[in-house]
Design a protein around this nucleic acid. Sequence first.
DNA 1: ATGGCTACGATCCGTAGA
Length: 256
Amino acid sequence: MRLASWNVNSIKVRLPQLLEWLAAEQPDVVCLQELKTEDAGFPRAALEAAGYSSVVSGQKTYNGVAILSRSPLGEVATGIPDFADEQRRVIAATVRGVRVVCVYCPNGQAVGSDKYDYKLRWFEALRGYLEAELKAHPELAVAGDFNVAPEDRDVHDPKAWEGQVHVSERERAAWRALLELGLKDSFRLFAQPEKTFTWWDYRMVAFRRNAGLRIDHILLSAALAERCAAATVDKEPRRLERPSDHAPALVELRAG
DNA sequence: ATGGCTACGATCCGTAGA
């Protein structure tokens, strides 16, 4: 099973690129973030025609997540249980026995801001949710835009970013708390090229300078990590005209 | 100099992203 995650930064703007990418890469399951549209505006028919069924938790202007799959999607759930949140950031479904949780974690804006506090509370709620999901579903993948660069090697210029939002100690601790549940950062299961990132600012010709962060991740439970044959980042879509500022992350899972 | 794009929904600029 080929599983991907991509923050598309508007499904309406990126649909042509998404369709081309699906045809080229043939992923089985795709977690999408930042749809920026309500469910009614989601291009369900176009994706169906491309061979993908979808489940969506959309929102106007901000946020919005979806899971696409070439196999049937079951046990669909949205949001984090017991965490009241207007923002559509989480959707989960089961595909071929694998529990897939798609997340768009809060940005946090600036350390010390209200949004930063919300980000930390949100991660704590996510941790509790994933702890329960792991117990119910040993084959668990959590894919999305985490808005955390876990280590300095995930940051193009650690000195410039020191203490900033996305790399601050409390955010990294929140990330490590997810790993402590027994989840593995799939990207780090393999030797990787240095300075592999998943996000580059639209400004400052950041992509051409590879001035990026690795903030989009696919976490795997132990049972899935054992079956993981590859974990990569596909920078190609970021090279296109009018790209998303994020690149897709992918994993290859052997049959269980 | 802390900006610089991009998307959105509302105007002809503000909010948010990261």
